[in-house]
């Protein structure tokens, strides 16, 4: 049994405006499962639909939660995770990561992407590991960096 076996990870998806989010999230689910970590996805309605359609038999993804319901459950101390990966491409994503930094005990990672990734990453002024790349359509630059923040 590995050190990460039985642990849980939250993947918090924001607005799916930037194409790489869905494929990187599914890839991350696979990598987490390889390590015995159970992934749980929370996201906006559109982000959730994109994920569910891309993995209809749920070979990689697992439980999927509404974004606000997930925040409520963590804030009310009804639920928490060992790891939290927040997908960030705008100011709103930074705000959700900031919220998790305050309400969750998870190891927090911000996956920052999009054309303004560097400027967006600079808004992260709270404790949070960050991987940032300007990827918008090609997920590979993010995938390469994900290795640094996997359990």
């Amino acid at each position: 049994m590995t050190e990460t076996e039985g642990k849980t990870a939250l993947l918090l998806l924001g607005c799916p405006q930037v194409p790489v989010q869905t494929s990187v999230a599914i890839h991350l689910c696979d990598q987490l499962r390889e390590r015995g970590v159970t992934p749980v996805i929370a996201g906006t309605g559109s982000a959730r639909k994109l994920i569910e359609v891309a993995d209809p038999k749920r070979r990689y993804i697992g439980e999927i939660l509404d974004l606000d319901d997930c925040i409520d459950a963590i804030a009310e101390k009804q639920r928490d995770f060992d790891y939290a990966y927040v997908f960030i491409h705008n100011d709103g994503g930074v705000s959700y990561a900031g919220t998790l930094s305050a309400i969750s005990r998870a190891r927090l990672v911000g996956i920052v992407y999009g054309e303004h990734a560097d400027e967006t990453a600079a808004l992260i002024t709270f404790p949070c590991e960050v991987v940032a790349t300007k990827a918008t359509h090609n997920p590979m630059p993010i995938v390469v960096k994900l290795g640094r923040v996997l359990p």
Partner: peptide, 16 residues
């Protein structure tokens, strides 16, 4: 206040 503070029956989202 900290993010997650309950205002109008909702948890506030934001950077602390």
């Amino acid at each position: 206040v900290e993010p997650g503070y309950r205002l109008f029956d909702a948890h506030l989202i934001g950077v602390p």
